[in-house]
Nucleic acid binder design. Structure first.
Length: 287
DNA sequence: AAGAGGCCCTGATAGC
DNA sequence: TGCTATCAGGGCCTCT
């Protein structure tokens, strides 16, 4: 669920709240995330100063002052909550998420600072925390990822060349992080709707014009989503982004059987499965 | 090389 | 009421 825009919103919030803070203590309540958190993780992070928080694709990166990093992935259901000490020295939830109450279950990781702490909650445990020693190791860890949609490397030449012998459908490539990184299942459908391209279109058969559309609409959709604070779907009580409003602007995602919202289009939104992932498109204007 | 499929996990929901 | 089945999907893995 957290795709590039949601992760970007969390990153921005973290930069406002925990930049230049020193980690006083780390508490792991459950090590069994996507990758097992090693036993020395708490000690390794302790006393490190967070210089800044950056993001690549769907990864959040804590940049420490000594050149090391902590790589964080939210998986599908990961959320980060911030608690700050009030004047009575009690922690109050000033979360990045709407829920005024901290979730009771699945609070796996706690990182404490002098006056605040962040809590990582993840019911499905598809996310992870990983300590990275230096820039070289970070680059290696992320080296399998394709360019972000915003990158100048995500250009017409790159697409045309990449698609040369690709017989698979375009929708699968949009969510393939090796091709382009940051787009997930929700935004893939939204992007193709704006392009008027059918999700099952064979990649190698796409015209230059359509490749250009894919590039520009990927950027458009993700930028709009970031400006709307990301998308919040399904569990509105707990996972709803504080400013997450983009779900209200979905043109096709989760709109199966509804009429197409495009001007003068009489089509209907259809839901199909591509590689076991739900995919939404208009049966009239997406060719 | 490319593509298909499976697995990890919990919670919400549907159907009986 | 309580049971079971299905779906949600990001990343990584294996197999052909």
């Amino acid at each position: 669920m957290p795709e590039l825009p949601e992760v970007e919103v969390v990153k921005q919030s973290l930069n406002l709240k925990i930049k230049q803070k020193k980690i006083e203590k780390v508490i792991i309540k459950n090590r069994n995330l996507r990758f097992k958190i090693p036993l020395n993780f708490e000690k390794v992070l302790q006393n490190r100063l967070i210089k800044k928080i950056t993001r690549f694709s769907k990864y959040i990166i804590l940049n420490f002052s000594d050149g090391s990093f902590c790589l964080i992935h939210l998986g599908m259901s990961g959320t980060i909550h911030l608690l700050q000490k009030n004047s009575l020295n009690k922690f109050t939830n000033t979360s990045f998420y709407n829920s005024s109450e901290l979730p009771k279950k699945h609070n796996h990781v706690v990182i404490k600072f002098k006056d605040s702490k962040i809590i990582y909650n993840d019911p499905r445990r598809f996310g992870f925390f990983k300590f990275i020693h230096n820039k070289k190791e970070l680059d290696y860890r992320l080296s399998h990822l394709g360019p972000e949609p915003f990158s100048k490397n995500f250009n017409l030449k790159y697409l045309m060349n990449y698609f040369l012998k690709k017989k698979k459908d375009i929708k699968s490539f949009l969510i393939d992080q090796k091709f382009v990184s940051g787009i997930g299942n929700i935004y893939a459908s939204e992007i193709l709707f704006l392009c008027k391209i059918h999700p099952k279109s064979v990649a190698m058969k796409l015209s230059k014009k359509n490749c250009k559309k894919i590039i520009s609409n990927s950027r458009t959709v993700l930028n709009k989503a970031i400006k709307s604070g990301g998308s919040s779907i399904r569990d509105f009580k707990n996972i709803s982004g504080r400013n997450g409003n983009f779900q209200k602007k979905f043109r096709v995602y989760q709109r199966g059987d509804l009429s197409c919202s495009r001007n003068k289009c009489n089509g209907k939104i259809k839901k199909i499965f591509i590689s076991n992932r739900s995919t939404f498109f208009c049966n009239s204007c997406q060719k």
